[in-house]
Amino acid sequence: MARRKIASQNNNLILRAMQPGDTDALAHIYLDARILNFPWVKSPKLADFELASFGEVVQVAIFDDEIVGFASLSEWDSFLHLLFIKVGFQRQGIGTLLLNWARQMTKAPLELKVVTANISAQHFYEREGFKMVAHTILSNPTNVTYRDDRDS
Rank of each mutant, 00 (worst) to 15 (best):
S139N: 05
H123I: 13
I137L: 08
I119H: 14
T116L: 07
G55M: 04
S72Y: 13
P141L: 07
H28F: 08
V60W: 04
H123A: 13
L98T: 06
Q9R: 10
I6S: 04
L82H: 15
R147V: 14
K113I: 02
P44S: 05
A2P: 14
E66C: 14
N118W: 01
V57L: 15
I29L: 10
K45S: 15
F84Y: 15
D148V: 06
S43W: 04
A61E: 06
G93H: 05
Y30E: 03
K107G: 03
Y125W: 00
S53R: 06
L98Q: 09
P141G: 03
A27M: 05
Q59R: 13
R127F: 00
L98N: 04
V41L: 14
I14P: 03
I35E: 07
D64S: 14
A33C: 14
F124K: 09
R147T: 11
N140H: 08
L46F: 08
K42G: 01
F38M: 12
F89N: 04
S43I: 05
E111P: 01
R16G: 03
L110N: 01
S74R: 12
N10S: 14
D65M: 12
L51I: 14
D48A: 01
Q90S: 12
E126Y: 00
I137P: 08
W40K: 03
N143W: 10
I14V: 13
T136E: 07
